[in-house]
């Protein structure tokens, strides 16, 4: 249930309860809802409004199994609004509209192997899905998380990654694109982990989030391993304004990312995925 079902254009003020620096340019804002409730599905996003500056779509990165009003978003400073957001402190107020969009296919994945392939900030939109997979771990077969970051310092949620691999029967493999001496983990693009991971391609469902070019090569590798396009789900990004299918800003082929996405079954978007200007 969204926070303002009557008027989806209405922004609700949320107080910032905590700010956490994740990497040099990425941070997590913990927001507190006034009525102590906020329900959402893994994969959905909110429109976050920095008063006087502007509004941007940011995925929800908190735990959907605990709808206690504790809502987190992990964002990277890339431009005007995210820069202003990074400067916000505990006690400041941020406007929230949402949640919007489609969810990761966690129900469809019941009884199957789950392969999550993600890169950079792309781990944030998948964190709610991981929380849910962990909460209902016995409903799924193998759960594999393959995550690529630029350097060891740019790995998101480091402690959680260790915990997920260590305590929760998840197969977690992290790789970085470049590293020097002290790093003892994998080096190479995230796609190289796909051929090494242990899962059953004939029954696996894949969830992919990252820069589009990374997703393109990931889908190719998943295909080579035998996962067909109907069992691959991707999360897409396009510029947004209304987030409710009115303005057309987020058009992607015949679809609107804000309503038909951001999570798409890949076979639905394959004809125009990776093409310029769609």
């Amino acid at each position: 249930m969204s926070i303002s079902t009557e008027n989806p254009m209405l922004t609700t003020p949320f107080r910032i309860k905590g700010v956490r620096k994740e990497t040099h340019d990425t941070f997590t804002l913990e927001l507190e809802s006034q009525n102590g409730k906020f329900s959402f599905e893994p994969g959905q996003f909110n429109m976050l409004y920095v008063y006087g500056i502007g509004e941007v779509p940011i995925s929800i990165s908190s735990d959907p199994t605990k709808p206690d009003g504790r809502l987190t978003h992990t964002a990277r400073e890339v431009g005007v609004v995210t820069k202003a957001m990074k400067q916000m402190r505990t006690g400041d107020t941020l406007g929230v509209r949402g949640p919007f969009g489609t969810r990761w296919p966690l129900e469809e994945a019941v009884g199957r192997d789950v392969v999550i392939v993600t890169g950079g900030i792309g781990l944030a939109p998948l964190r709610p899905a991981l929380y849910q997979l962990i909460a209902k771990r016995n409903q799924y077969r193998k759960v594999v998380l393959l995550y690529g970051a630029r350097t060891p310092d740019e790995i998101l949620y480091q402690k959680e990654l260790q915990k997920w691999g260590g305590e929760f029967d998840l197969e977690v493999h992290v790789t970085v694109d470049r590293a020097t001496g002290a790093w003892r983990g994998n080096v190479g693009v995230v796609t190289t982990l796909i051929s090494r991971a242990l899962f059953d391609p004939s029954n696996a469902i894949a969830m992919v989030c990252g820069p589009e070019i990374m997703m393109r090569y990931t889908i190719q590798e998943l295909g080579k391993r035998g996962i067909s396009n109907e069992r691959i789900y991707v999360s897409m990004e396009r510029n947004m304004k209304c987030a409710i299918g009115f303005c057309g800003h987020c058009q992607f082929g015949p679809m609107f990312v804000c309503q038909d996405g951001p999570v798409f079954q890949f076979n639905q978007i394959a004809p125009f995925f990776g093409k310029q200007e769609v």
Binding site: D25, E77, V78, R150, V189, P211, I213, M214
Partner: peptide, 19 residues
Amino acid sequence: VQRLSATRLQLLDLYGNPL
């Protein structure tokens, strides 16, 4: 060939900040 295409992707700096 596999290593070459992986290296090309690595060179793209996939997760570099647009800013």
